[in-house]
Design a protein around this nucleic acid. Sequence first.
DNA 1: TCAGTTTGCCAACACTTGTTGGCCAACGCC
DNA 2: GGCGTTGGCCAACAAGTGTTGGCAAACTGA
Lengths: 206, 206
Amino acid sequence: MRFEEQREPGPERRGSGPVPAAAPRRSDATRGAILAAARERFAADGYERATIRAIAREAHIDPSMVMRYYGSKEGLFAAVLDVDLRLPDPEALDRGDVGRVLVGHFLDLWEENEVLTAMLRVGVTNAAGAERMQGIFRDQLTPVARLACPDPEQAPARAALCASQLLGLGLTRYVLRLPPAVALHRDEIVAWLGPTVQRYLTAPHP
Amino acid sequence: MRFEEQREPGPERRGSGPVPAAAPRRSDATRGAILAAARERFAADGYERATIRAIAREAHIDPSMVMRYYGSKEGLFAAVLDVDLRLPDPEALDRGDVGRVLVGHFLDLWEENEVLTAMLRVGVTNAAGAERMQGIFRDQLTPVARLACPDPEQAPARAALCASQLLGLGLTRYVLRLPPAVALHRDEIVAWLGPTVQRYLTAPHP
DNA sequence: TCAGTTTGCCAACACTTGTTGGCCAACGCC
DNA sequence: GGCGTTGGCCAACAAGTGTTGGCAAACTGA
């Protein structure tokens, strides 16, 4: 069930000219505030415990507004989870260094905002969330694997291996917060996990 | 908040002789059924969505019985999560093969029953669950690392690295069920992840 | 100025949750 | 047999959930 840009029917576009970039509305600020608050609550509490009321409170608006703008809790959640991993262009990558680059990139993603934390927290308990995660990793990580690995046919498996290590890192460090995992420095993590990912992508099938 | 063996005050132990192994009760079957059902529900649904009512229904008893025997939902959950990873004795391990052995052992654990799935599903959304997971991995995995790695002082960090890969495997294969991760054969997984864990444990600090 | 739309809040709904207390039947010991 | 103990169910509670409809204020375009 994909969430469609669901607005009240706005005024018809007038004139021709360039598309007016979806005429901004007074409520866009509220929409944004809801989305930000939702991301935060979902990341901190998971799907069930992140209540619409709590999200609304954090966004300083009434719970009913959340419903009006996003249709339902599921709709809001779908809007939050429009994740773009922004993986580097595989064509432009140095084949010998993909592993370290990917690990570094994922560390940046996890620390940039809570969207990955939210995705993982929800994906683990919510079927729709898990499906969404499947899609994200299939569509965004597999192409990288396809260009980096010796046999394109093995790309999905190799991407899954990478996902297991990269998600495992996020899980232990940012979700469960195992103290030794939190204490590791960025450079150490890249040095330890980089070669692992590199091997999963480029080494010959064992 | 540790869950204490909480029974109604039973009859005093009579006679001396060997400890009578906590005189069995008629209700032990029910207790067991509740525990099994709880493990199943927690594993399938996570903490919030695994309702006491659903657990009771699955155990074919009344919800109030769950409360009487386990005090509260938290108490039941604590009883479910008494996890023993049964890691092999590190003394007796072949130093050159720890990685493969550990990976194989964890695969067995995940497939043996749903207790690890339950632990992960709950640990991700529930603070008490996360703490419990921290304890389990700290107390059970770190000792193995201490004996396998060159510098015992690095044991916690190396154990965390192993945990990241081992939990990542469980996450992608058994919780999120990413299709390519599910499709991998046991031997392939051991062949791919074994060397990784081996390196995290025994390789010199990079 | 004034009608129509947009933005927001309030109060309520139907429902589910964990939890409690009371009641009844079956058991086990004298 | 009789009687206390145990095992079990039923009905209810207070609290919290997602969701809805109506109504007032603010804005917008003519």
